[in-house]
Design a protein around this nucleic acid. Structure first.
Ligand SMILES: [Zn+2]
Ligand SMILES: [Zn+2]
Ligand SMILES: [Zn+2]
Ligand SMILES: [Zn+2]
Ligand SMILES: [Zn+2]
Length: 349
DNA sequence: CATCTGTAGCGCCCCCTGCTGGA
DNA sequence: TCCAGCAGGGGGCGCTACAGATG
């Protein structure tokens, strides 16, 4: 298809990573379709804030903040555990705006903070490394607190158990208990191949599989395999079922992933949540900002394997390959004369 | 309780496209 | 005119974190 000049295989393109493409199979997305409603300002604002927060987080990559938040978390734990579970009236999500609203309220909680834990955890903590299959317990004083945290089911209202740290509610006590762990920094499942730690055995198992290359979930339609079921499911939607649950209400665009829809929505709103620290540029997309940063550093990650010329973007190098080193590279012919132009964009004048 | 199953989200990288300005 | 720089919109995947439901 398309693929300018066909699928030209570029011999070892510099440092570019070549991803294998897969193909696929069939499966049904059970749930309905999530519609992105017309830019309700409120929601957009939520998104925006979230985006900014994220951008600063991601580009900062420093830990100080996280450490700070972790400490705050610890304190909260200490305090909040007494108050414990509360009954909250959920009733949050409206039906349709669902996605946006969930997105909006999602990040909330300081749950995040507990995520960069692995790095902190693995430093000291006498960890007895677990084998791939089994796991050992890392001593963590926090456990005790949790044990003491006896959830109480409030009277009347909606029955269910609510978390006192966030808006989470569950009809099952067991799920609430499990949820509570997300507010702690405890990660008792240790990888024996790297310093990472996880909260659940499944998580560790999946992680270890990424080390070993074990991919239990094979696509029946194309032989591509994945570490998790979710990856396989997504792959099938992309390659085989073509299900795109997320629909834009402003245009015809639809996507397989919610994050793609959010990215797309920004093309409508013009929102640019990822500002550059060094200039006035701001991006709608985190990766675009990263790419932009290369213009400040001068880094040229892509090298032509033939002439060693270096380029800032993989696409630019690819074009270079075609124009300079490609045989029978189709040139674009000017519709008005017989001139052959190597670049379509140069046809414009 | 552990486990299965499915989703949410972030990140990474690629693709293609189109414009721009200097050589 | 050529060509590299560089931004916009989007596809596809890697991996982690969780929630609902079950045994
Ligand atoms: Zn497949
Ligand atoms: Zn590991
Ligand atoms: Zn749209
Ligand atoms: Zn900049
Ligand atoms: Zn070259």
């Amino acid at each position: 298809m398309a693929a300018l000049a066909g699928a030209v295989v570029l011999p070892g393109q510099g440092q570019a990573v070549v991803h294998s493409v897969s193909q696929g199979m069939a499966l049904t997305l059970r749930e309905g379709i999530c519609v992105f409603y017309d830019l309700e300002l409120a929601q957009i604002h939520v998104l925006q804030e979230e985006g900014q927060e994220k951008s600063s987080e991601s580009k900062a990559t420093e830990k100080p903040v996280d450490r700070l938040r972790m400490e705050i978390d610890r304190d909260n734990d200490a305090i909040a555990f007494e108050n414990n579970i509360q009954q909250l009236s959920p009733s949050e999500e409206g039906e349709g705006k669902k996605l946006f609203s969930t997105v909006g309220e999602k990040k909330s909680q300081s749950c995040k903070a507990s995520e960069n834990l692995s790095e902190l955890c693995n430093e000291s903590k006498e960890q007895e490394y677990a084998t791939a299959s089994e796991q050992t317990v890392v001593k963590n004083s926090k456990n005790l607190k949790f044990q003491a945290c006896a959830p109480r089911q409030k009277k009347g209202e909606k029955e269910g158990f609510s978390c006192c740290f966030c808006s989470f509610t569950s009809a099952r006590l067991s799920n609430l208990k499990r949820h509570l762990r997300t507010h702690s920094d405890e990660k008792r499942y240790l990888c024996h191949l790297c310093p990472k730690a996880f909260r659940t055995a499944t998580l560790l198992h999946n992680h270890v599989n990424t080390h070993t290359g074990t991919k239990p979930y094979k696509c029946s339609d194309c032989d591509t395999a994945f570490v998790t079921r979710g990856e396989l499911s997504r792959h099938r939607r992309y390659k085989h079922t073509l299900e795109k649950p997320f629909k834009c209400t402003i245009c015809e665009y639809s996507s397989v992933e919610a994050s793609k829809m959010r990215r797309h929505i920004r093309s409508h709103t013009g929102e640019r949540p990822y500002p550059c620290d060094l200039c006035s540029y701001a991006s709608k997309d985190a990766y675009k900002l990263k790419r932009h940063m290369l213009t400040h550093t001068g880094e040229k990650r892509y090298e032509c394997c033939v002439c060693r010329a270096r380029f800032t973007q993989s696409g630019t190098m690819k074009i270079h390959m075609l124009q300079k080193h490609g045989e029978n590279v189709p040139k674009h012919q000017c519709p008005h004369c017989s001139t052959l132009i190597s670049r379509k964009s140069d046809l414009g004048m």
